[in-house]
């Protein structure tokens, strides 16, 4: 029983991280209909920026997280302006190939500078809580709390502010959004900035548990794709719920089935689901 609870807790941690990454991916997909393969690289760069600021410059973890969010957000906006914007009318495979190009480029640059070694980002607190027979490292608690706080903040931003509601409006109806005078360029840039910041925060949160290395974004990106397909491409609640499903499936599967193959679980789930329902679990038949 305790083992089960412990695994559920681990699943919640994983799910929170996956949810944050998937949120950014799904927002960008909702606005531009681009599966941003470079999103995994943004996640990875976020961790390296935090590592640099905290580990090499000696600043605090929190400052490092803020720096990572700002820099990666700026980088994401640059990608939108320089790459995705010029390709918005191109045939459908072009934007995907360009996104892959960006992914490879970012990874190579990071690897050239820092090498392929694994690096550790120190957690802000190494204390461990014990509660009802459960082991609760502070970083895991932080991940869960921070992730849900961020999701809540994003929800408020999208629902309660004018800027946020333009994003929702454009995701739901592009033509309509243009008619009511929404500046599509600004919305696109804003969306990329948010998605980059979310990725950076997610990786900064996860890095103390999971190490920092150039290929760290691969699996997370693939799983985030699985999540948004599960949850319906472009759906915000779908990304959060999908993230938790994958997080739990992985933690439980890794524990009860096979630790070696836990990374395959998400993909096996995807294959199973898409084989039965080619448009994803929660899609409503539109688009």
């Amino acid at each position: 029983m305790d083992a089960l609870l412990q695994q559920l807790l681990n699943g919640l941690t994983l799910g929170s991280i996956y949810g944050l990454v998937a949120l950014g991916l799904t927002l960008v997909y909702g606005i531009l209909h681009v599966p941003n393969f470079a999103h995994g690289a943004l996640y990875m760069i976020g961790a390296y920026v935090a590592y640099y600021v905290a580990g090499e410059l000696g600043a605090s973890y929190w400052l490092a997280m803020i720096a990572a969010a700002i820099i990666v957000a700026a980088l994401a906006v640059a990608c939108e302006r320089l790459v995705f914007h010029p390709l918005r009318h191109a045939p459908p495979i072009h934007d995907k190939i360009a996104a892959i190009g960006l992914l490879l480029f970012f990874e190579a640059v990071v690897q050239m500078y820092w090498g392929a070694d694994f690096r550790r980002l120190e957690a802000p607190s190494s204390s461990i809580f014990y509660f009802a027979g459960l082991t609760l490292p502070a970083q895991r608690v932080l991940i869960i709390v921070a992730a849900f706080a961020l999701m809540g903040a994003l929800h408020l931003y999208l629902k309660k502010t004018l800027a946020g509601s333009t994003i929702i409006a454009m995701a739901q109806n592009r033509e309509g959004a243009f008619l009511v005078g929404i500046n599509a360029n600004r919305v696109a840039m804003m969306t990329f900035a948010i998605s980059g910041a979310l990725a950076a925060v997610a990786s900064t949160l996860f890095a103390p548990i999971n190490l920092v290395y150039p290929a760290m974004g691969h699996l997370v990106l693939l799983k985030a794709f699985v999540i948004i397909i599960l949850g319906g491409m472009g759906s915000i609640p779908g990304a959060i719920v999908g993230g938790l499903i994958i997080g739990f499936a992985e933690a439980l599967g890794g524990f009860y089935i096979s630790g070696d193959y836990k990374d395959i679980i998400a993909f096996a789930l995807l294959v199973a689901i898409l084989s039965i329902k080619p448009t994803g679990l929660f899609s409503q038949g539109v688009r």
Binding site: V83, P86, L87, A90, H94, D95, I97, A98, I100, G101, L102, L103, L104, F105, F106, E107, A108, V109, M112
Partner: peptide, 13 residues
């Protein structure tokens, strides 16, 4: 990939 990555992007654009 430092060369290929941007090359892919420039090519498709």
């Amino acid at each position: 990939m430092i060369v290929f990555g941007p090359l892919l992007v420039v090519l498709v654009i």
